[in-house]
Design a protein around this nucleic acid. Sequence first.
DNA 1: GTGGTCTAGACCACG
DNA 2: GTGGTCTAGACCACT
Lengths: 123, 123, 123, 123
Amino acid sequence: MIQIDFRDPRPIYEQVADKFEELALHGVLQPDTQLPSVRQLAMELSINPNTIQRAYSELERRGVIYAAKGRGNFISDSIDNLRGRRLEETGRQITALAETARALGATEAQLEDWIHRKGDSDT
Amino acid sequence: MIQIDFRDPRPIYEQVADKFEELALHGVLQPDTQLPSVRQLAMELSINPNTIQRAYSELERRGVIYAAKGRGNFISDSIDNLRGRRLEETGRQITALAETARALGATEAQLEDWIHRKGDSDT
Amino acid sequence: MIQIDFRDPRPIYEQVADKFEELALHGVLQPDTQLPSVRQLAMELSINPNTIQRAYSELERRGVIYAAKGRGNFISDSIDNLRGRRLEETGRQITALAETARALGATEAQLEDWIHRKGDSDT
Amino acid sequence: MIQIDFRDPRPIYEQVADKFEELALHGVLQPDTQLPSVRQLAMELSINPNTIQRAYSELERRGVIYAAKGRGNFISDSIDNLRGRRLEETGRQITALAETARALGATEAQLEDWIHRKGDSDT
DNA sequence: GTGGTCTAGACCACG
DNA sequence: GTGGTCTAGACCACT
């Protein structure tokens, strides 16, 4: 379910947190679904429980999950609101990158192409 | 010409390097233009010469400038090629973000809107 | 009578204890009223009897109920005194928060407004 | 400058973070003031550097400070905005407590008294 | 020197 | 068994 890439420059805890957030935002993990326990996931991934703990703390801070002491961690009910906010944020990033591209000489046609292109591995 | 923001969380050498790269890519600094010497710029900005040295090394690594031992640092002649590569890279980022946005439920119309919107501070 | 919210980050025993205390302080449960037995309530709520036992211990500690061995748990006769003490405590908290607010720049008029405002969801 | 109370039920990192936030919000620490380094403060307080690190991370998350790698931690420039938000939050807490107090039988006169009373140690 | 990340292992509260 | 906190000590990137 979770894969760690040790060549990824991001800290491990962030990779784990981002992956769970993605699964939750895309609807793969539904609200109130229980996440694997800190210790269990640490064993599966062969990393320190503290690192998983930090990933889960980060997810709680972002509002992706909620933690109940002694019971476990669960996907938040308000995950849909979060999806809307993330979408707005992505939109702002696209607008900013489009401006940068224009400053580098991109045409409107090129922008249109990029936005509708499927994610080909080459190019 | 160069302004350092000590409240910027980026390392100082990166702020300096990014600023020079931007000036070069946008045509403000033309090929073969000489950059200020390490010592002089360090004095102007009141920071450690090692930090400027690192910024220049970074720019050389990126292909933005070339160093002529004993004579100084100059904007690279192949800066136009670099602009092309930066543009491709920005395009790939836009394509990737567009995919993310679709996965979060964005419509094609929304994407069109974002790509053509001017960088309004709100929204 | 008692509802458990598994999404509430508070421990379950605390949710149960707080709910009973509220009912007692607001006069819904009168002195000497018998509480449901540990086993029965545990069954109703589908949770571990140990958790209910802990909630009742907590209530006894707070002076909300008294336990009669072999006969059950009952609302304390001195519940009115408790109400008075809780009220004093709340008063102290309000006074402390008012001081904090002043330190942050609140005016006396603002304090008056807050204290008399109905609990609107917004603002 | 910072005092730790080991009888305080709050985690140490939270005590440290709260204290710095208070100093910043009350204007004792001005924007761009440098905080003591992680290691130095850890030594002064005789606690583990990681605990201080966590306190500083928490402060950065709250927007009270900003961290610059290799340079140190500094009070944020936008601390004034934060003060406004904290004030609103305090107002909501007061309103909520006032409602609780009314439910326990408090009169409007009593509420007025509490809100204007100076923080006497007794009562 | 600075902050940021990770591991290892301990202790506590909750169920 | 669960999550939350703390300590100890290591390594890395940045100045």
